[in-house]
Nucleic acid binder design. Structure first.
Lengths: 151, 151
DNA sequence: TGGATATAAGGGCATATGCCTGCATTATTC
DNA sequence: GAATAATGCAGGCATATGCCCTTATATCCA
């Protein structure tokens, strides 16, 4: 038999394979976004806010599937740099709603074509068929939904 | 038309889909490893060292596809906690070779069955066929090889 | 209405990841 | 063999991610 049943090989680990792929694709997108100083994580936050303004930290976190407090910190960075504004919710005193500042909107408009190019290049390198299959595999992947502390 | 051509939707981003999947599967493996206090990243380092002792930081980094200096820091944590020992290479004064301590070996032995269970559970939740397809998709994925600062 | 419970965030702490720079050591080249 | 280049790491700095605990509101229910 090939890999011994008891051998715990790094290369057999599904988690490793996925993490490795995530790092690789992130490097691709990050390199495209570099002229803007944004990384893909930050770009996605701006994109989410561009789609829907006035979103709470929790909503943002859920939308981007990150841990709540982690999102708070990331948004904090963007706020510090003037791309995002946080204002208290008029209906809920606990909540603060995030929205793009004009500067943030501008940065997003600048970054969007770079993202598109990364997306296009990834599609070109892998072929529409493989990309479709990959996306389906990822979307269908089950992990048992271990909270990021929502539920 | 469905999603406007100019709409940069978070959900269309291949990078986002991949990162999200990586976080999800990491949560699964991390939760299984929790009794040992290890996370999947640390477990993989121990596993790599278990497969081959006396590896330089650079070799480890390349094997696990992480940035060199990042690997140095992660190994540093494991060294601090007594699971890994770093000794100067006898043939190259610049290099330090990492190996498991008995304590590290023991921890690995303790963690391996938990990893196996995570791996098994992932396989069960997704089915052998889908897992195979996913792994193939990931392995075949091309991103243009943007160094993690090796080459 | 007042107390119990639930929810939104923030702060602290720790690891993970990556960049850039500097330092020591080895390898190369003339 | 000395000057130069390449290599292996460490350190500093910044973001990313996640956990825990605390605080401020909001809600609900007796």
């Amino acid at each position: 038999m090939s890999p011994n049943k008891s051998s715990v090989g790094v290369d057999q680990c599904h988690c490793f394979a996925m993490r490795k792929a995530a790092r690789q694709i992130s490097r691709l997108y990050d390199s495209h976004l570099q002229p803007t100083g944004l990384r893909i994580t930050q770009f996605l936050i701006l994109a989410a806010l561009n789609q829907e303004q006035g979103v709470s930290i929790n909503d943002l976190a859920e939308r981007l599937d990150t841990e709540r407090t982690a999102m708070g910190k990331m948004v904090g960075v963007l706020e510090r740099d003037g791309f995002v504004r946080l204002r208290p919710s008029p209906t809920d005193g606990r909540s603060r709603l995030a929205e793009l500042t004009p500067s943030g909107k501008g940065l997003f408009e600048q970054a969007a074509p770079l993202w598109r190019e990364a997306q296009r290049q990834f599609g070109e390198m892998n072929g529409a068929k493989d990309v479709r299959a990959l996306r389906q595999n990822l979307a269908g992947m089950k992990t048992g939904d271990l909270s990021t502390s929502f539920e």
